[in-house]
Write a protein that binds this DNA or RNA. Structure first.
Lengths: 217, 217, 217, 217
DNA sequence: AATGAATGAGCCTTCATTCAT
DNA sequence: GATGAATGAAGGCTCATTCAT
């Protein structure tokens, strides 16, 4: 009905409001420190709503992590059908740049980064499914690209090590930001800076990959 | 009394016991989730002891972080006077290997890694002094080494980027361990594995550095 | 609609389903501990159904108690027109046996016993009408029988005391079951056991009644 | 110190206050319905005191049951060394009278009766130890007396049945009080009434016992 | 007649801190 | 120097009830 339409545009349903509020609060304070009162107040909902809709704080958290993934994926699709005519070198640069952009995006996408950082320090049961459904596909896509760059028949081990060398250089800027900002006060993560960062990481890694290509195994 | 003397030699003083207990508990559960009762029980002390000796939970935490640094430094001195006859390439490998060993050490040294990981996610005021007193000296020592490898007059920016490329590859294995163990179940961090890891990171990075050496700026 | 008709013949109406479910749940958990959700889930009804049909939890409870009486009465009619040719001694045995059977029956009849036990500990307003409509008639029937056994003109007081001596011996096995099963682990309440129990209580009581018959007052 | 003495007479220690308050509240409302706020307010203590001293509501309840037993035992010792010159008949009357007095005593002793009634309806784990430590000894003392009255060699079963016939007649007045007061409004439990009650139960039971003595087995 | 969503009061428990000793 | 008792704030959760449909 038209009425429904009006309602759905004016006032988001409670469940959705809770997800939004919880995403922000969990990202900022972590699972433990976040209080459902805080979340509910922000969502304009009753404290009991969380238990009604998500069966408790833990259930809400699990749903939030899935929701954050969904939002991030929608905004920065990782499965971009890249132009087939691109060289693998160019493709790597695009991958690195996209990765960095995602890590330093604002809004709902930022939740994911913060939530995942917290998961690294204190994994919950949700991490299992996140790795399986989200991270593994990305990992395999990157490995496929690296194999093209490594040529011949690189060992599984070598591909993994190279993959981690590439990924680690991207994640570092997100993960160690508190130290970076204290160590190099001028360091920023503007659009232009991210582009320079992507260029460095790509060049550095391509050289490393070429070196690895020569090695046996 | 004589009795007191005996006690102080046989049992560690309460203050020390608290530091030890708190280190383990904070590392395992984090600042928030750790409870004073848990720490005091482990230390065989009264619940009020923390407030008495450290003026509250926060004070104890700050002291623990300093203590953990002290212990780690004692066990894995970073300022080792390396043999001057070593090539910078060999020196880099030794640095990387030592870094990895420290990250995957057990015991009190492990606290530091875990505590620092938590600081990355939720920095406290203690981080400022830790960066200044502990991390910055290490950073400069590494930059000095990298300048020898980059030759000519690399820009400050370039040295920093290369430094982070090297460091990130080491930290990654510690920081993302929960994902690695889920993604690559066989992956281990035995002594032998750490040596292979150090070799890969060094070779990969040396190639990247040589590439960077050719670039201007 | 025809569909409704089918539904109403195949499935019990919601109201009835709620009574059945509530009977079981109240008997098992008591008024306070029983939850409306538990009852409604068991009845396959909505959480609001109880308020709709019975105007709240208390209203449902009152209705359940009446319903349980109705069911128990249907199954073990207490007003059985006993064969006039029976001796009062034999009649007493039949009464005692029937009472015990009712107390240890299963199914809906069991609800009543459990609910009444709970009423003894924490009487509700419903107890007034239950005593008036259900217990008093039974009491008077038993008193009539006892007067035949006591002969002459026993005082009201004496009849009452004898009545309670008889009834108490029956109720005890139901009421103190938790202690009995702990004190005498082998004690059971099988059909045969109930018959032996009835025999003992009857003989014991008949002796007591004969003794009372001799007393004045 | 004198000061301690003053304190201990003027203000009871918190733990004791809690036991007193909890005894009254648990007896009146039952374990579930009783709230620790209610108890703590009555005891003039903080809500956290219950967790501190008794490790939660359940722990407090267990302790209260033990405390109530202790108080009842102190006030109505069951192990009274009866005059050896008494006949078993007279001894039975004293036992029955003492039992009734205990059941209808006021104050702390009343708690025990109410708490035990509730345990019959909804046994907790505490019941096990209560039966073992409190009820079983009493049971055996009564059985010893009954054997003297039954003479010869009565079967275990017969002694048990007679024991329960005696005990049930006493407990009934306590347990079914709500029904009794509705059925026989004039019935009271004054000191005089309890004496008459004891006389009736004793005479009634002695006749039953003499009858049982004649039976085989 | 019946329901899914939402509410607000209340409960038990945990915890860092303080106080008197 | 060190402690056991006690505190008050706050948190997650449960539950009977109500409301709009």
């Amino acid at each position: 009905m038209a009425q429904d339409k009006v309602k759905s545009t004016l006032e988001e349903p409670t469940r959705q409001q809770l997800l939004e509020a919880a995403g922000a609060v969990f990202a900022e304070h972590g699972f433990r420190a976040a209080t459902i009162r805080q979340i509910c107040q922000r969502a304009g909902a009753n404290v009991a709503a969380v238990n009604y809709h998500f069966d408790g704080k833990a259930g809400l958290y699990a749903e939030v992590l899935r929701y954050a993934h969904h939002c991030a994926e929608e905004r920065h699709p990782t499965g971009v059908a890249l132009d087939k005519s691109l060289t693998p070198e160019r493709e790597l640069e695009l991958f690195v740049h996209a990765f960095l952009q995602r890590l330093f995006d604002e809004g709902r996408t930022a939740w994911l980064g913060k939530l995942m950082s917290r998961e690294m320090v204190e994994p919950t049961t949700v991490l299992d499914s996140v790795v399986e459904e989200q991270i593994k596909p990305n990992s395999q896509r990157l490995q496929h690209l690296l194999r093209r760059l490594l040529g011949a028949r690189p060992s599984v081990e070598r591909v993994r090590l190279c993959e981690m060398s590439v990924v680690s250089q991207c994640l570092f800027y997100h993960h160690c930001r508190p130290v970076i900002s204290r160590l190099f006060p001028g360091f920023d993560f503007s659009t232009a800076a991210l582009r320079r960062l992507a260029a460095h990481i790509t060049q550095f890694s391509l050289a490393g990959l070429r070196r690895a290509k020569k090695e046996r195994v």
